[in-house]
C-alpha cells in the first residue's frame, strides 16, 4: 500500500528521531549554518563590527582583485606554501611509512614515536618550540656552532629569505597522520603480488613503482586532497611564529583574512575573503578529483573502467 504524506507525518518514529538529534540540530543551525550564511551576507557589506553592516554589493570582491597588493601577496605566499609543503610532506610520510612497514624489531614502538609529533603538532606549544629551535639563539644554531663550528647569525624564523621555508619544514615535520594512513594502505597490499614479482626478478624500485604505488594511489589521492585543504587553511603557525612578517613574507591567506576582520575591522572584507577561499579550494579539489581518473587505480573499478 502506498503511503500518503499525511500518514508519513503521523509516524511517531519521525518525531522521536528529530527529538533525539535536536541538540545536535540546534548546534548545527545556531553555530554553523547561521554564521555561514551571515558571513555570506556580510561579504557584500562594509561592516566594522561596531556599527550596522552597509550593503555595498560586489565592492569587496572588486577591491580584492583590482586594488589590494597585500591580497595578491597573500595568495602568492599561500600557493607557494601549499605547492611545496604538501608534496614534500606526502613524500616524507610515505618514506617513513615504507620504513616502518618493514619487519624490523620494535616497529610498533617506532610507529607510535613517529606519530607523536602529529599528536602535538597542531598545538601552540609545538609551534612555540619550533621558534626556540630555529630562532637566532635557538638549538639549531647552537648545534651548528658547537659541533661544526659554523657561526650562523640569522634567525630561520624571522629572516625574510628563510621564514617561509622554516614554516614549510614545520608542516613537513607534522607528517604523522598522513604516515599512519599510508601505513594502513601499505598493509593492504597483497604480499602475494610482491612475492610473485620478486620471483620474477623485479628489483625493489621496480616493485615499488609498479605494484606498491598503483595499489596505494587511492590512499595517496586521499592524503593529497586532505593536504591541499589543510594547506590553504594554514594559520596558527604563521600567526604565532612570524605574525605574517617579516614584510609579509609569510602572510598566509587566512592570516590576512584575520587581520582584516579583527585588526582592521573590515569584517565584510574578511568574510568576502573567506568565501573566495572556499570557492578556490573547492575548484582546486574538484580539479584533483577530475584528474584522479588518470592516475588513481581502484581495484574494483566497476563500470568506470575503460
Amino acid at each position: 500500500m502506498k503511503r500518503t504524506s499525511k500518514q508519513w507525518l503521523r509516524n511517531p518514529d519521525l518525531y522521536a528521531g528529530y527529538a533525539f538529534i535536536f541538540p545536535w540540530l540546534l548546534g548545527l543551525f545556531v553555530f554553523s549554518l547561521f554564521p555561514i550564511f551571515f558571513s555570506l551576507y556580510l561579504s557584500f557589506t562594509d561592516y566594522d563590527i561596531l556599527s550596522a553592516p552597509q550593503w555595498i554589493g560586489f565592492e569587496n570582491f572588486k577591491e580584492m582583485f583590482t586594488d589590494d597588493p597585500r591580497f595578491v601577496k597573500s595568495v602568492k605566499v599561500t600557493l607557494l606554501y601549499v605547492a611545496v609543503s604538501v608534496p614534500l610532506r606526502l613524500c616524507f610520510a610515505l618514506a617513513v611509512a615504507a620504513l616502518l612497514n618493514m619487519k624490523i624489531k620494535g616497529a610498533r614502538a617506532l610507529r607510535s614515536l613517529y606519530y607523536l609529533p602529529t599528536l602535538m603538532g597542531g598545538s601552540v606549544a609545538v609551534i612555540v618550540m619550533w621558534g626556540q629551535l630555529f630562532g637566532i639563539n635557538g638549538a639549531f644554531n647552537s648545534f651548528m656552532r658547537s659541533i661544526f663550528g659554523i657561526e650562523i647569525s640569522i634567525s630561520w624564523i624571522t629572516d625574510p629569505s628563510t621564514a617561509l621555508g622554516s614554516l614549510i619544514a614545520l608542516s613537513v615535520w607534522q607528517f604523522g597522520s598522513a604516515m599512519l594512513i599510508f601505513l594502513a594502505g601499505l598493509k593492504q597490499i597483497p604480499a602475494s603480488l610482491l612475492e610473485a614479482a620478486l620471483v620474477d626478478g623485479a628489483s625493489a624500485a621496480y616493485r615499488f613503482r609498479r605494484i606498491t604505488l598503483p595499489l596505494l594511489s587511492p590512499v595517496i589521492f586521499f592524503n593529497l586532497v586532505m593536504g591541499i585543504i589543510g594547506g590553504f587553511k594554514v594559520f596558527s603557525e604563521g600567526m604565532i611564529l612570524t605574525g605574517g612578517g617579516p614584510h609579509d613574507q609569510t602572510l598566509f591567506y587566512v592570516i590576512y583574512l584575520y587581520e582584516n576582520s579583527f585588526r582592521f575591522l573590515h569584517m565584510g572584507y574578511g568574510s568576502a575573503m573567506a568565501w573566495v577561499l572556499l570557492l578556490a579550494v573547492s575548484i582546486l579539489t574538484a580539479l584533483v578529483f577530475r584528474s584522479s581518473s588518470l592516475w588513481v587505480h581502484y581495484e574494483s573499478k566497476g563500470e568506470r573502467g575503460a
Binding site: 518525531y15 522521536a16 527529538a19 535536536f22
Partner: peptide, 15 residues
C-alpha cells in the same frame, strides 16, 4: 512505540 515515548520524554525534559 518505545522510540516515540522516549522522544516525548526528551521533549518533556527539555521543555
Amino acid at each position: 512505540m518505545i522510540g516515540f515515548s522516549a522522544g516525548m520524554l526528551l521533549i518533556f525534559v527539555l521543555s
